[in-house]
Design a protein around this nucleic acid. Structure first.
Lengths: 159, 159
DNA sequence: ATAAACCTTGGAGTTAAATCTAAGGTCAAG
DNA sequence: CTTGACCTTAGATTTAACTCCAAGGTTTAT
């Protein structure tokens, strides 16, 4: 059993945040001490970690509440309801993954194309890679690859 | 060239939001009409779509500004700076992807385990699947698989 | 037995990100 | 030549999600 400060520290949030989550129905401690201190068990901690993970990938607290509500009143739901809801969220998640992979490809391409040296980055065409999801980044000395790299290093010494 | 309302509609945001982004340095129209109307070109629209995609996967406007700033003053940066920054963001993105895949697996498992029928969902152990990233969901009639499904359907008729 | 470090509640304040309001200018259609 | 749907700015208000504060109770270490 953790007291509020312990759980907060463990999960790198403020105790206030846990009280806030409780007030808004996301996470209540499973018990209280005689003196009224909140006591969280491992299951509560797991639930908090779920909330924080969901938040980190862009779900709002309202959406997280909805996700968690699937459990709360599950005996009042039909399987079809649950499945519909889960599939909806799944679609949402899949879309986020697709979007992130876009970013990932762009950033990797950019990182690979940049020599990383002390030269001016003038020739690293960053936004071309980030913004438009074109197949290749703009490249000053383009047109040929060698074994050492799939991408052309395009930083130039300023002289 | 789009006027503010056109671009807003196209990207499903309010015109106010575009003015807000302009005020905060994220997106300025590339020109103005004689009468002072904002005029956005395709490049501006692309930039907006980038901002919205980044927002959807949980980046704050401050982080997006930072991402976009790589381009703005790129001639003042060394390649090493740019690469460092990009690699930092890349790590961030990779972590988000990993987290989302966790969700994806959990939700898929849950969806597959739920028969989707009109029965009570009492036996769909949702939070078990969502919260703890265990290898298998809790299952009422567990222990054997058949060809038709990798997962055991565990909804039960109430009666 | 008392100080330091916890905890309680209720309510106010903050920050990010819009969203709205007011007072007025622009433009195409009838 | 006016009506209605756009646009302008400046500034106020809202919403989500915390974050802090005040006044007091509890625990633990010396």
């Amino acid at each position: 059993m953790y007291r509020i400060g312990e759980l907060a520290k463990q999960c790198e949030v403020k105790a206030d945040t846990l009280r806030f989550y409780e007030k808004h129905g996301l996470l209540a401690p499973s018990s209280r001490s005689d003196s009224g201190y909140r006591l969280y068990n491992e299951h509560d901690a797991e639930r908090l970690r779920f909330i924080l993970r969901a938040k980190a990938v862009g779900f709002t607290l309202a959406e997280i509440t909805e996700l968690l509500s699937i459990e709360l009143d599950k005996s009042n739901w039909a399987c079809a309801d649950v499945k519909g809801m889960v599939d909806g969220k799944l679609e949402h998640v899949n879309q986020k993954i697709a979007e992130l992979k876009h970013f990932q490809v762009s950033l990797e391409r950019l990182s690979d194309a940049c020599c990383g040296g002390p030269e001016s980055a003038e020739h690293c065409s960053i936004l071309e890679a980030l913004e438009s999801n074109t197949d290749s980044i703009k490249c000053e000395n383009h047109g040929h690859h060698h074994d050492s790299s799939q991408y052309t290093k395009n930083c130039q010494s300023k002289g």
